[in-house]
Each structure stands twice: as structure tokens, then as C-alpha cells.
């Protein structure tokens, strides 16, 4: 495990990067250490308006995994929707059910479509084994309700994310499969975008083959 001292020169390399590409490379270097101590720095990078660096930082946070979750949740940026989208993308990739309340709220209520999109995707990617089975019925009902609602979002990309999330959720949890199929059929009935229709058909086919 790297200590904070080891990481300091890597932080400096990020801070002093002369170009967007140099910064991206410096972030990739920092991520190679998978150091829990670097989580706050990686979260900071999400707010730099440098998509290349942010993609690298998100990958780094997902690789660190569960130890990054509390700091991510504590540092969600309420002013910068770009940073908020990246943070939710990291939470979605990690899949820790501790992020469920945040993901539900972001998927349904965030004004920024990129935040709604990543949070919606994340609702289909939760690692249910990390949650006490006693809590499954309530949590899974919340996920199903939220995804059904996200499937009616006014932005096509959020609806697309809801379909992908429903497919994942229905594949993971057999007891919910019938409800998921019904929800997908509801989406199909009103969908106007060809690509979303195509994705719904693919999801239906996948789930029916299980």
C-alpha cells in the first residue's frame, strides 16, 4: 500500500501539468497505485473540466472500489454537474448499495441529464451480495420503481440507460424478472427513438432466454 508521502510527487505532477493530455497521463500514473489515500485527489480531478483526466480518475476510483464510496458520497459536488456526473459514474461502477439513496435521488431528480443517465445505469449495477438479504425486498422495489420512472424520462439517453439497467437488474435477480419484463413492455409502448426501441427488444430477448 502506498503512503501519502509516496503519492505527493504524483499529485504535483497533476497540479503542474502543462496541458490537458499531460494531466491525463499524470492521473493515469496516480491510478496505477490504487491507493486509498489518493481518493480525495481523484475526486478533485473530476471537477477540472478535463474529460480525459476525469475518465482516468473514474476508472481509478472504480479500481479502488468500496473504500472510495464514503468519500465519494461525502463530496458530491452540488454546483458542478459535470463533476457530479463523473462521481455518480464512479459510484455506479463500484456498485456498492450504500450509494443507493444517492443514486435513486440522482436518477430521478437531478436537473442534469448526464447525472440522471449515470445514476440510472448504476441502479442496474448494484452488488446485491454486499447488502443484507433482509433489506433486499424494499431496496429492490425502490430500484424497480425508479427504473420504470427513468424509462419515461424526457431525454432519450436516460431512457436508454433505464433499459440497460432493467436488463442487468432482471438478469441478476430472478424473482424480479417478470416485473422487469412488464416494465420494459411499458417503455416500448411509448418509445419514439429507434435506438431505444432497438435496445428494449434486445433486453427483452436477453431476459426471455434466461
Amino acid at each position: 500500500m502506498s503512503t501519502t508521502l509516496d503519492l505527493y510527487p504524483l499529485y504535483q505532477a497533476i497540479d503542474n501539468a502543462g496541458s490537458a493530455e499531460d494531466m491525463r497521463r499524470a492521473v493515469v500514473k496516480l491510478c496505477e497505485h490504487r491507493a486509498e489515500a489518493s481518493v480525495l485527489k481523484l475526486i478533485e480531478v473530476l471537477g477540472y473540466n478535463n474529460p480525459g483526466a476525469a475518465i482516468a480518475a473514474v476508472d481509478g476510483l472504480i479500481a479502488i472500489g468500496r473504500p472510495a464510496v464514503d468519500l465519494l458520497l461525502d463530496n458530491i459536488d452540488s454546483f458542478d454537474y459535470g463533476a457530479r456526473a463523473w462521481a455518480n459514474r464512479a459510484l455506479a461502477g463500484i456498485g456498492d448499495p450504500r450509494a443507493l439513496p444517492n443514486l435513486l435521488d440522482a436518477a430521478l431528480n437531478d436537473f442534469a441529464l448526464s447525472v440522471r443517465r449515470v445514476a440510472t445505469k448504476g441502479l442496474g449495477n448494484l452488488q446485491w451480495d454486499w447488502l443484507d438479504t433482509v433489506e433486499w425486498p424494499t431496496a429492490q422495489e425502490q430500484v424497480l420503481q425508479a427504473l420504470t420512472q427513468a424509462g419515461k424520462d424526457e431525454e432519450w439517453v436516460v431512457r436508454y440507460a433505464a433499459v440497460v439497467a432493467l436488463e442487468n437488474f432482471g438478469s441478476q435477480i430472478e424473482t424480479n424478472r417478470e416485473a422487469v419484463l412488464a416494465s420494459l413492455q411499458t417503455c416500448l409502448a411509448t418509445e419514439v427513438e429507434s435506438v431505444v426501441c432497438a435496445r428494449i427488444h434486445k433486453a427483452l430477448k436477453t431476459l426471455k432466454a434466461l
Binding site: 491525463r24 474529460p51 475518465i55 459535470g82 441529464l113 448526464s114 439517453v157 427513438e193 429507434s194 435506438v195
Partner: peptide, 20 residues
């Protein structure tokens, strides 16, 4: 591409529609 995913998704959707 090193850019926001929102834009990449829109570009791919446009390609999808063009292909259809």
C-alpha cells in the same frame, strides 16, 4: 475520444439512425 460521454452517445445514436 477524449470528450464527454453525453456527446459520444449522441454521435453514436446519430450513426445508428443513419445506418437504419
Amino acid at each position: 475520444t477524449l470528450a464527454e460521454n453525453s456527446l459520444k452517445l449522441t454521435a453514436l445514436k446519430d450513426l445508428f439512425n443513419a445506418h437504419l
